[in-house]
Design a binder for these strands. Structure first.
Length: 335
DNA sequence: GAAATTTGACCTTC
DNA sequence: GAAGGTCAAATTTC
C-alpha cells in the first residue's frame, strides 16, 4: 500500500493503523512462541484463544481506521447509494405532487436494487441468538424452500443515515436441537459499533466450539463496500431471545465505549482490496485460496459451526499457517 | 407520535 | 419460472 502517497490529513490514520498492527505483530510473535511448544498450548489454551482473538480484533480496528468512512467524514448523501442512481427519478416523482396515475407508475418501479449474490458473506451457526453489537432493523421475512423455518432479513439501522450496507439474515436451522444460522452480508460503514461485548466462555466444553474465519476475496463491484463481516458478538443471550420473533436488535450506547484489547473482539469488515494488497509476503494464490482458517479453540460461548462465503477456491489451513498468515499480513501492511 | 415490525408485492438471479 | 432478497405500506409497539 502506498502510504507515502496518502494525503497529509491521512497520516494520523496511518500512524494509528501502524500502532494497532504493531500490537498485533507482538501478539503474533508471542503466539508463535506458544505454538512452538505444544505442551504450553495444552496448559494455556485460554491464552492462545485470547491472543488469536486479540490479533483478529487488531485487524478489525486497523481496518476500521483505514476504512473509507474514516477518510470521508462527509454526511451521507443518499444519492450515493448504488440503488439511488437508478431510482433518483423515482424518488423525485414520489416527492412531487404528481398525479395518482404517476404514483402508480412509480410504485411499479420500486426495488431498484442489486442482489448481492456474489458479495462476500459470513455465515455462522449459533445455538443462541446473540447481540453482535450493531443496531439492526428487520426489513423482511421469507419462507425458504426445504426449510421449516422462515428466514428473517435485517439491515443496519444506520443504512439511511450513514449509508451502511450491512445486512444480515437469521434463520433457525432444521436440525435438532435447532440452532440459528446467521449470515452477515456487506460491510458496516456506519461506525456505530458501540459497545464491546462481554464474552462468556463456556468452560465446560471449549473444544467443542470451532471458528472458521473467511478471508474470501471478491472482486470490487459497484458496491465495493461489501466485505467479510465478523461482527462483535455478545454471547450472553438477552431475555426474550428465545425465539426469532422476539429478537431485539437494539441500539447500544455510544461508539466511544470500545473495550480494551483484552476483550475478545471479532474480526470484522475485511475488505478484499486491502487484503489483496497485503498479500505480497506470500504467494498471492496461497493468500487468496487460504480463504479461511479454522480454530477448534474458540473461546466464544456460542457454537460457531461455520463461517463461510462462497465456496469457490477456499480451503482450510492449519493453525500454524494461520499464524504465519497473520504475521505476514502484519509485516507487509506495516509498510 | 415516532420507531420498529409485519407482510404482500416487486425485482433480480439462476 | 422458481427462489430468494428487498421495498414500502400497513400495523403494532413503546
Amino acid at each position: 500500500m502506498e502510504f507515502s502517497s496518502w494525503p497529509e490529513s491521512l497520516q494520523s490514520h496511518r500512524m494509528k493503523a501502524i500502532q494497532e498492527l504493531t500490537k498485533g505483530q507482538i501478539l503474533t510473535d508471542k503466539l508463535r512462541e506458544l505454538l512452538d511448544e505444544p505442551a504450553k498450548i495444552e496448559t494455556d489454551l485460554m491464552s492462545v484463544n485470547g491472543m488469536v482473538e486479540q490479533i483478529l480484533g487488531l485487524f478489525d480496528s486497523t481496518l476500521s481506521i483505514l476504512s473509507p468512512s474514516n477518510f470521508n467524514k462527509i454526511p451521507y448523501n443518499p444519492t450515493w447509494d448504488i440503488r439511488s442512481t437508478n431510482c433518483q427519478n423515482v424518488h423525485k416523482a414520489e416527492n412531487s405532487s404528481e398525479s395518482i396515475k404517476t404514483k402508480a407508475l412509480v410504485r411499479t418501479k420500486r426495488g431498484c436494487y442489486k442482489r448481492r449474490k456474489h458479495a462476500s458473506s459470513v455465515t455462522k451457526v449459533t445455538s443462541t441468538l446473540i447481540d453482535d453489537g450493531y443496531a439492526w432493523r428487520k426489513y423482511g421475512q421469507k419462507v425458504i424452500q426445504n426449510s421449516k423455518h422462515q428466514r428473517n432479513y435485517y439491515r443496519c439501522s444506520h443504512k439511511f443515515e450513514q449509508g451502511c450496507q450491512a445486512t444480515k439474515q437469521v434463520q433457525k436451522t432444521d436440525g435438532e436441537p435447532s440452532k440459528y444460522r446467521i449470515t452477515y452480508n456487506g460491510l458496516h460503514t456506519c461506525n456505530n459499533l458501540q459497545m464491546a461485548p462481554q464474552i462468556i466462555v463456556e468452560a465446560s466444553k471449549p473444544m467443542d466450539n470451532s471458528t472458521l474465519i473467511s478471508f474470501e476475496s471478491h472482486t470490487l463491484r459497484e458496491d465495493n463496500k461489501a466485505g467479510n463481516c465478523f461482527s462483535l458478538m455478545q454471547c450472553t443471550p438477552k431475555e426474550g431471545f428465545s425465539t426469532l420473533g422476539d429478537v431485539k436488535h437494539k441500539q447500544v450506547s455510544s461508539y466511544d465505549h470500545h473495550a480494551p484489547w483484552d476483550v475478545i473482539v471479532g474480526l470484522s469488515q475485511v475488505p478484499s482490496e486491502p487484503m489483496s494488497m497485503m498479500s505480497s509476503g506470500l504467494d498471492r494464490e496461497e493468500m487468496v485460496s487460504s480463504g479461511e482458517f479454522s480454530s477448534k479453540y474458540s473461546t466464544h460461548g456460542y457454537d460457531i459451526d461455520e463461517i463461510s462465503g462462497e465456496d469457490e477456491g477456499r480451503q482450510s489451513i492449519t493453525r500454524s499457517q494461520a499464524v504465519k498468515y497473520l504475521q505476514v499480513r502484519l509485516s507487509v501492511f506495516r509498510y
